[in-house]
Design a protein around this nucleic acid. Sequence first.
DNA 1: TTAACTGCAAACAATTTGCATTGTT
DNA 2: AACAATGCAAATTGTTTGCAGTTAA
Lengths: 135, 135
Amino acid sequence: MDIRSELKAHEIKYTKQREEVLSILKASMLPMTINQLRDQLEVEMDLSTIYRILDVLLEKEIITKTVPLEPSQALYDYKRHIHKHHLICTICGKIQIIEGCPLHDYEHQVEAKTQYIIDRHQLELYGVCPNCQIH
Amino acid sequence: MDIRSELKAHEIKYTKQREEVLSILKASMLPMTINQLRDQLEVEMDLSTIYRILDVLLEKEIITKTVPLEPSQALYDYKRHIHKHHLICTICGKIQIIEGCPLHDYEHQVEAKTQYIIDRHQLELYGVCPNCQIH
DNA sequence: TTAACTGCAAACAATTTGCATTGTT
DNA sequence: AACAATGCAAATTGTTTGCAGTTAA
């Protein structure tokens, strides 16, 4: 599906800024910070515009947001069919994608125990990548 | 163990500011933001001092830091024997403690698969608490 | 006494807001 | 034409830093 249709499918008004932000996120295999996103823009746009677009995409659950422990700048990620988490190297910052999620059953158990209705979670792992273990 | 000894055991120089910050965190069953912490101080102290003290306590792994998705202000928590996570109500902000951790085996699997050495993780759940489901 | 810690003020960074202008439907 | 989105500038908020004065060991 092209970006234009994807926006329409979510009832988001088309603008070239929204198209560009979404297509950059969609093309990236790794989650991105606002600054990384801005650096990839072909047409410059104001940071406040980017923030507002990300808010819309989050609202519609087209992307996800994560706030890592360090550096604590938010990461935005296009939501694909495979739910995934990140393993972040605390030395070099490299992000390793971990496909799948270990929390399905756990969330149900917690719902049963607490009576909360759980609708999402934030999980990242932190450690040292193979490369940084050597150097 | 009293706070003074606890600081000494971790080779942290005693100051009344450090004593107070640590004792407040230790007394709280819930994780706290910097502002909540400051509001409980009997002796006022500068915010930069609080940040620096928290850095020391984190360094020595006496406390943990979490950066929730919303509101994205860091939470600090005294580290007890029972590893735990938080379930945060996205309506009223109430934090429910979940004792235990579902990630032990998972971390080992991920280590085996990725060759990273994993040393910590961040996990919180988000949902709607029983009270907010009614109102 | 010495090195480390604190307070203060200023800098910095990330994010949000108000408002006039522009663009989409 | 009507309403919503963008750009710009300014305001907010959270956090960090430099430095002079104070304090713990």
